[in-house]
């Protein structure tokens, strides 16, 4: 009993939250301009796409999966949408087709994992390479796709403001809210927790685990598409090469840092928010401190490292209780 209370008090989420709060207070006190409304909006805005991708990843990770194809889906479906628009397809149908592509990728991921029983790590790894290659090969021949003039009607998605708040922040909030509602209040959401907590028990007690797996990957792909459109409209282009960058690792970090264990069944959207905010505060603070961009990356990685080290110190793992094959 005592152990449970203790671990609840010093869970990784708490550690990260406390770190974030301390950093926030320190920065507010010592950094000129940090606490201004404009800066705070910039702060959240800079991480809102990361946050949306984090929500997508969280849904999968809670169900004891992982979606390494999330960045490929994010970039390639958005790139195809812009490409279609460039070729003269009206923006409405182009958006729908892009969404269909993303969901198709998610469905294939789910089918590979649920029915072919390929481990999620490798199914999505393979799919990431395949999706990137297939779209570049068959649908989008150029590395960078620009937003054509006939797509100007959707540029508000990434570049607009509502009551002075940039739309990406609002969309992040909306996606986070819907994600939370799904996980916390729907039957499927509760089953995903059950599945992540104890897969065999969930299956034996009658949860439709295969359908749920397919569902969670389809959902994550659809959310990734939303993130893709936000980026595409914010920068007026999609650089498909982002698939080969380290963005996917950042997404995983946001999720895990917030306290959603990779072994599933724990945490919620709240954790994604915490993780995203920590990254946002860090980046913003360092920027204001005039730390060079490359050095910022080093410091950020070091702080992430200390967060997971701290977690392991307060919640040590034990040889006796370790799960075999749990990496």
């Amino acid at each position: 009993m005592f152990g449970r209370i203790k671990s609840a008090l010093v869970s990784q989420e708490r550690i990260v939250l406390v770190t974030a709060v301390i950093l926030f207070c320190v920065f507010s006190l010592f950094l000129k301009g940090f606490l201004s409304a404009a800066n705070l909006l910039t702060l959240v805005r800079s991480v809102s796409v990361l946050g949306v991708l984090g929500v997508a990843m969280a849904i999968v990770v809670i169900g004891r999966g992982v979606d390494l194809a999330i960045v490929a889906t994010y970039a390639m479906s958005a790139a195809w949408t812009l490409r279609l628009a460039t070729q003269g397809v009206a923006i409405g149908p182009a958006l729908l087709l892009g969404l269909a592509l993303a969901v198709a990728v998610g469905l294939i991921n789910g089918l590979l994992i649920a029915f072919a029983e390929i481990p999620a790590l490798f199914a999505t790894l393979g799919m990431a390479a395949f999706v990137y290659g297939f779209v570049r090969f068959a649908l989008v021949p150029l590395v960078v796709v620009y937003m054509p003039a006939n797509a100007a009607s959707i540029s508000w998605i990434g570049g607009g403001f509502v009551a002075g708040v940039p739309t990406p922040i609002l969309l992040f909030a909306l996606v986070a809210f819907l994600g939370h509602a799904f996980l916390a209040f729907t039957k499927a959401g509760r089953f995903i927790y059950a599945m992540g907590d104890n897969f065999a028990a969930a299956r034996n007690s009658g949860a439709p685990v295969r359908g749920l797996i397919v569902l969670q990957y389809a959902l994550s792909a659809a959310i990734a598409y939303v993130a893709g459109i936000i980026t595409a409209t914010a920068v007026s282009s999609v650089n498909t090469n982002v698939v080969n960058s380290s963005l996917i690792y950042d997404v995983i970090l946001v999720v895990v840092l917030g306290g959603i264990g990779l072994s599933g069944g724990r945490g919620g959207i709240r954790n994604v928010l915490v993780g995203t905010l920590l990254i946002g505060i860090l980046l913003n603070g360092m920027t204001i401190m005039n730390i060079q961009y490359t050095l910022q990356n080093v410091i950020r990685s070091l702080i992430l490292l200390s967060a997971i080290v701290l977690d392991s110190l307060v919640n040590p793992r034990d040889e006796q209780t370790e799960q075999q094959g749990d990496i």
């Binding site: 029983e117 393979g126 395949f130 570049r136 021949p141």
Partner: peptide, 27 residues
């Protein structure tokens, strides 16, 4: 000398195929 993307596509397919076979096989 495949067109851009084709090689990535092939590598992805080979990985999926090989892991699929491997999983089925050991099972």
């Amino acid at each position: 000398g495949l067109e851009s993307g084709a090689s990535s596509m092939v590598v992805g397919l080979v990985l999926l195929f090989a892991i699929g076979i491997d999983v089925r096989w050991s099972k």
